[in-house]
Computed example of a mutant assay.
Amino acid sequence: MLWNWQLSDWPQFRFDQASLRAAEERFIKGAGVIVGSLHHLDGEARQGIAIELISQEMVDSSAIEGEVLDRASVQSSIARQLGFASAKRRSNPAEAGAAELMVDLYRRYAEPLGDQLLFEWHSMLMNGRRDLADIGAYRTHADAMQIVSGALHAPRVHFEAPPSDRVSGEMAQFIAWFNDSCPQGSAPLPAITRAGIAHLWFETIHPFEDGNGRLGRAIAEKALAQSLEAPTLTALSATINRHRKAYYAELQRASQSNQIDDWLHWFASIVLEAQSRTLASIRFLIEKTRLLDRLRGKINARQEKALIRMMAEGPDGFIGGLSAHNYRTITDATSATATRDLAELVELGALQRTGERRYARYHLVISTNVSGNLKSDSNH
């Protein structure tokens, strides 16, 4: 089998731009709705949502590669690097490096892409690693760079990247295209199209010894941010992580041809879903603040603690809902007190109950209806 980079038309990607027009327009419209929604938040709340989304991006981006980072530690590190007060929480080298990368992406999204910027990002991401020959530099090993699975004696090769001696030349061509295709470049491309091509192209070259997936998704985020001329809050990695199996399958399929319509259409659907998740997170923050304000003086400390704990799970909430047992664990309440507290929260409209007796579950009454808000905000 020949890979895309081995074909005679590499890297002349072919696709039907007109078929992506509707998705590109939805993305730009959605970006406007997000900006409008952020105006409902004060400075501290906007800082909070930025820290939440940035940290979740890196936690999920690492999870796609099988690396587990502690979200609270990453959040704390990001808050400190952005100059916001945060809890004194110790981060391990991987968490600190991941946070540094995401903050740098957030702050310097508008800068042109270059070898040095990528080397800095790689050094941040590989913070604390001692098992790699090349950190902060393109790979130099003579062995084939392959993505494989299966047993050692019978590996299955999903993809093989260009050899190391071709990486510098391939990256020079990629970087020139990336900068030329930005909004101010000589050959600008629409946001989703550019981000989709950039991610596929970078992953094809696989220029580093490790960390290519996370860096490739950071480059896609950079492309989206440059197109919007603002730090992106698109939850791209968080959404890809929810479709991880399809993500790898689509990347493998796209690596076999330079006709990339299928890849771009799949990527566009992920970007639009990510944007909806971002808006849902912002709506959730706005509505939870309103709910707590409405309940102030009407609930006790136990009830407030439980609600805040539920809200910490974000728009998706407790999986399966909050049980009375969960409530007792969170608040140290007795069974009778928990029953009474939960009933009061239902009566106040803070929680909705489903099920009966030991099967009873409680859910936050917070609307994050994105489609309805998109419609109403578009009229402003």
Rank of each mutant, 00 (worst) to 15 (best):
L2Q: 14
L2R: 11
L7A: 13
L7K: 12
D9R: 07
P11C: 03
A18Y: 13
A22W: 13
A23Q: 12
E25H: 14
F27V: 02
I28P: 00
G30P: 05
G32T: 02
L41E: 07
D42V: 08
A50C: 01
A63P: 05
A63G: 11
L69G: 09
S73V: 05
A79S: 06
R80V: 10
L82M: 15
G83E: 05
S86H: 07
A87F: 02
M102I: 10
R107C: 08
R108E: 05
R108M: 03
A110W: 07
L113S: 03
G114A: 13
D115A: 15
L117H: 08
F119A: 07
W121T: 09
S123K: 13
M124E: 09
L125W: 06
G128A: 04
R129V: 13
R130H: 15
R139S: 02
A142E: 13
A142H: 15
D143V: 01
G150H: 13
H153V: 12
E160Y: 04
V167D: 00
S168G: 00
M171T: 02
I175Q: 00
F178V: 09
N179K: 05
N179C: 04
C182W: 03
A187G: 04
I192F: 15
I192W: 14
R194Y: 10
A195W: 14
G196K: 10
H199T: 09
L200E: 06
T204N: 14
I205S: 11
H206I: 07
H206E: 06
G213V: 10
G216R: 04
R217L: 07
E221L: 11
K222I: 09
L224H: 09
A225T: 12
L228Q: 15
A230Q: 05
L233E: 00
L233W: 03
L236I: 14
S237I: 12
I240S: 12
H243A: 13
Y248D: 02
R253K: 14
A254V: 01
S255H: 13
S255Y: 06
S257Y: 15
D261K: 03
H265V: 09
H265Q: 03
A268Q: 06
L272E: 08
A274I: 07
A274N: 05
Q275G: 07
S276E: 14
R277D: 05
L279I: 12
S281M: 10
F284E: 00
I286D: 04
I286V: 09
L291F: 09
D293C: 08
G297E: 01
N300P: 12
L307E: 06
R309Q: 14
R309N: 12
M311C: 15
M311W: 01
A312V: 00
E313G: 00
G314P: 00
G314R: 00
G321V: 07
I330P: 00
T334A: 15
T334M: 02
A336V: 13
T339R: 09
R340P: 01
V346M: 10
V346D: 11
V346A: 07
E347C: 02
L348N: 14
A350S: 15
L351Y: 15
G355Q: 04
R358P: 02
Y359K: 04
A360G: 08
Y362A: 11
H363T: 06
L364R: 02
S367H: 15
S367M: 10
S367A: 11
V370G: 05
S371F: 08
G372P: 02
L374M: 13
S376Q: 12
